[in-house]
Design a protein around this nucleic acid. Structure first.
Lengths: 225, 225
DNA sequence: TGTTCCATACTACCATACAAGTATGGTAGT
DNA sequence: ACTACCATACTTGTATGGTAGTATGGAACA
């Protein structure tokens, strides 16, 4: 294989999978978009086999739906799944931030500080996309610092649905300032091992992640189930 | 296709996947077992393609590890993942049982009662395998009654690792009696909407699920990472 | 005008051939 | 006896042809 389009280290199948997933979560491929093994294989210049593997993996995460002998399409955003994702994050992150207040590696705390200042810069640059990624990274660092990487990675499966709706939200009013402030408060609570405050702020923080789903739904009715 | 070995409704790929997964979680295929696309395709009388799809899906759940150009084997039980699975269940089930105390459909409550009496019969018959399945069903009903099916199904991915170690535990000392009693207490707490008791019992209940992992590890050192 | 039927062009699904990397055992050379 | 090398038999990764089910548009007919 010539690797013309990309010199990614992984196999072609893995590359197709991660590229497709990225495009789906970023809404570059909007919900409802019809895909097909042949079409994608031509676009990515690989055979149908790795494309098919990607579809299988994406279907397992409910990011695409495969209708046998009919076609494959990017799944519509399921508001129930979005709410469940928020629910899972609320429960798990409250517990994790409590753990973090009991014990958290100094180097991870430093990562949080670095992340916070990066967030500040992103907000000043009004770079929503970058802020989005820093927000994700912030929470991932929390899980990793509590040695809950596996939990985080399973959570990501649900989170993909939440993130698609957050992506829509990105174009309206993300109040990044408020979210940044909460990130800062959480970090400080961890530093002084104040579990009750940390949990309380985290709960409020996560309650803001979904906010007005109905508004988004009215704006993009064809994106939702 | 002749469907000689099975008249399952789903596609060949789905059948291979579910059969393999069942065999892995039940330890019929012990951790570390070498698989190969060819070998499995011969055993299941299908081509390599659906087998390969199954491997991809199982690899995504960390139930098999694929070493490119070298082979595929059933993953070893990762104690960290087992503990994380228990952690996830603890956090999520505590929250769910609280929701159940606030609101729970009468028909689901009836399912819990039916499940409880079935558990009683299984214990009298000393049928550990059936009790295991009823235990799973009990908790699933809780999630479904709170409309958290998606949460349950994502949780299952982590739970597969926990279940493999519970499967080992099955041959030693499951104290099903105590677990049954706790199931009963949880059901009663839901019936009288006593959230604090329900959460407390649930927490204790789930803490028993892992118990002495070190003992299992000494007994089957080759099954663990 | 409206309805039924059918050819056609899709789709995912499966089987199979080939490519490329890896482990292994035997053999030749030292 | 020991080492380096290589043929061989594995493995997974990729490409491709064929099969069966489904949607669709147009023609024949009422």
């Amino acid at each position: 294989m010539v690797e013309s389009w990309r010199s990614q280290p992984g196999s072609a199948g893995n590359n197709v999978y991660s590229r497709l997933k990225q495009q789906i979560v970023s809404l570059e491929l909007p919900p409802g978009t019809a895909l097909s093994e042949k079409e994608v294989s031509l676009a990515f210049e690989v055979s149908r086999t790795p494309v098919r593997e990607s579809f299988v993996r994406l279907a397992q995460e409910d990011l695409v739906v495969v209708l046998p002998q009919r076609g494959t399409r990017v799944s519509l955003i399921d508001p129930d799944l979005v709410e469940e994702a928020r629910f899972m994050r609320e429960q798990l992150e409250k517990a994790v931030v409590r753990l973090a207040c009991a014990e958290f590696p100094a180097e991870r705390l430093a990562e949080l500080d670095a992340n916070l200042s990066a967030q500040k810069h992103s907000i000043e640059k009004h770079d929503g996309r970058e802020m989005f990624e820093l927000d994700e990274a912030f929470h991932r660092i929390l899980f990793e610092g509590c040695r809950k990487q596996g939990t985080w990675s399973v959570l990501q499966q649900m989170n993909a649905h939440l993130n698609r709706s957050r992506m829509l939200w990105l174009s309206t009013d993300p109040h990044w300032g408020q979210l940044y402030e909460q990130h800062r408060e959480i970090t400080e609570a961890i530093r002084r091992q104040d579990a009750d405050t940390a949990e309380q702020v985290m709960q409020h923080h996560l309650s803001l992640m979904i906010s007005n789903l109905t508004v988004l739904r009215e704006k993009h009715p064809d994106y939702f189930k």
